[in-house]
């Protein structure tokens, strides 16, 4: 079954750029996550709910993605959903 993923609403996370990494403080859990690209870019695009295929296409438009793969992206999205940084809505 497919799913759409979306980033937390504004204010639910605090973001600190630590070039090249990014620290994300998740208010609901009180946990800090240090993430590498393209996670911040994914979260920025997921302001609107997207399927993994739609997200991959959007990432491909903006960034150089030599090995874009829907299955791998879905796995990463599910990991982010497990720690609360994205929400998964079944469709």
């Amino acid at each position: 079954m497919g799913a759409r993923y979306r980033a937390p609403p504004p204010g639910h996370v605090l973001i600190l750029s630590l070039d090249p990494l990014t620290a994300i403080y998740h208010r609901a859990s009180g946990q800090t996550h240090v993430v590498a690209p393209p996670v911040p870019e994914m979260l920025a695009l997921l302001v609107d709910p997207l399927t993994p295929g739609e997200l991959l296409a959007a990432l491909g438009e903006r960034y150089d993605l030599p090995d874009g793969d829907v299955a791998a992206l879905t796995a990463r999205l599910d990991e982010l959903a497990a720690i609360g940084l994205v929400t998964r809505d079944a469709i």
């Binding site: 600190l16 750029s17 630590l18 070039d19 990494l21 620290a23 800090t32």
Partner: peptide
């Protein structure tokens, strides 16, 4: 020391 290393070291 980059920002990421500083942040992680301080945590």
């Amino acid at each position: 020391v980059g920002a990421a290393e500083t942040f992680v070291r301080l945590t």
